[in-house]
Amino acid sequence: MSPKVPHEHKEQRQREILMASKKVFAQKGYEAASIKDIMDATSISRGGIYAYFSNKEHIFLSLLEQMMEDNRTELDELLQKNNGSVWKTLLTILDDYRKAEYEDTENLFSAAIVEYGITHWRKPENRDYIEKRYEGAAGIFSVLIQRGVDAGEFKPIAPVDDISRFMISFLDGLAISAISLTHGLMRTGKQMDLFESTLKMMLNVQKPDLSQR
């Protein structure tokens, strides 16, 4: 009879596999990455990986789910760091995009996400998942912006949900362009300045306290 593995150990091992897999997908792309690559990156046997995940796609989708949860946690931490100011929190997020390196793991993993979406969207079950993920990301921004509205920071000139989708369209477009172009060619800093000004206008920021930026 096999010994029972503590739940905490299972979660830790799953997370180790996911974090190592993220680097593999970033370096090789979704299609080119293999279970063997993930085995090499984790030093875990094929059977050990299959004990947690059924295949490469299961690993990839689980990684996207984990990243969504991590984003929510990081957002809560940013809000605390910025003393609950939603506008300062948004500025921190935009500054992170300004500072992103051309070939860092996050940017390269974005390429794998785009690759997966392009090559797998025709499957009904995958299309549903991609749409669900988009709605989840839009929901995170909508909740954040609404918090600013409720606190009196914003008096938006457009529906909150529309503004959140506008943000995703711009930021995703920037990330996709950064896959194959340099920030110098894209003039990322200038684009971010324009986006910040536009976002400030759309949100109709009432308390633009930038002293702690």
Results as ranks from 00 to 15, higher is better:
residue 102 Y to L: 10
residue 40 D to H: 09
residue 201 M to Q: 15
residue 106 E to D: 14
residue 5 V to H: 11
residue 70 D to P: 01
residue 78 L to H: 06
residue 212 Q to R: 12
residue 195 F to C: 05
residue 167 M to L: 03
residue 19 M to T: 10
residue 25 F to L: 01
residue 182 T to W: 03
residue 45 S to E: 09
residue 194 L to K: 06
residue 5 V to N: 10
residue 169 S to A: 15
residue 11 E to P: 00
residue 148 G to Y: 11
residue 91 L to E: 11
residue 90 L to I: 15
residue 143 V to C: 04
residue 176 I to E: 09
residue 77 E to Y: 02
residue 149 V to D: 12
residue 179 I to N: 13
residue 76 D to P: 00
residue 100 A to F: 08
residue 114 V to D: 11
residue 32 A to Q: 13
residue 21 S to P: 00
residue 96 D to I: 07
residue 183 H to N: 00
residue 124 P to N: 08
residue 148 G to D: 09
residue 24 V to R: 01
residue 193 D to K: 08
residue 203 L to P: 12
residue 75 L to D: 02
residue 1 M to R: 06
residue 145 I to N: 03
residue 48 G to D: 10
residue 104 D to N: 15
residue 119 T to R: 11
residue 212 Q to E: 15
residue 132 K to W: 13
residue 73 T to K: 10
residue 59 I to P: 04
residue 68 M to A: 11
residue 162 D to S: 11
residue 200 K to S: 14
residue 151 A to G: 06
residue 18 L to G: 03
residue 54 S to A: 13
residue 98 R to K: 10
residue 36 K to L: 03
residue 77 E to Q: 10
residue 5 V to G: 10
residue 210 L to G: 00
residue 153 E to M: 07
residue 77 E to S: 05
residue 115 E to F: 08
residue 82 N to H: 14
residue 141 F to N: 10
residue 198 T to E: 13
residue 171 L to C: 02
residue 194 L to T: 04
residue 200 K to R: 15
residue 155 K to A: 15
residue 41 A to N: 04
residue 123 K to F: 06
residue 154 F to G: 08
residue 58 H to A: 15
residue 149 V to I: 15
residue 152 G to T: 08
residue 23 K to C: 00
residue 26 A to G: 02
residue 110 S to C: 08
residue 212 Q to P: 00
residue 194 L to E: 10
residue 175 A to V: 05
residue 178 A to P: 00
residue 197 S to C: 02
residue 102 Y to V: 07
residue 160 V to A: 05
residue 163 I to S: 01
residue 70 D to L: 09
residue 135 E to S: 04
residue 186 M to T: 02
residue 136 G to H: 10
residue 105 T to C: 07
residue 109 F to M: 06
residue 201 M to E: 15
residue 158 A to C: 12
residue 181 L to Y: 11
residue 66 Q to T: 05
residue 196 E to Y: 02
residue 93 I to A: 14
residue 139 G to D: 05
residue 29 G to W: 06
residue 170 F to P: 00
residue 23 K to A: 09
residue 169 S to E: 07
residue 137 A to P: 00
residue 46 R to Y: 10
residue 157 I to F: 07
residue 39 M to E: 15
residue 195 F to E: 02
residue 213 R to L: 12
residue 125 E to S: 14
residue 129 Y to D: 01
residue 36 K to T: 05
residue 126 N to F: 03
residue 10 K to Y: 08
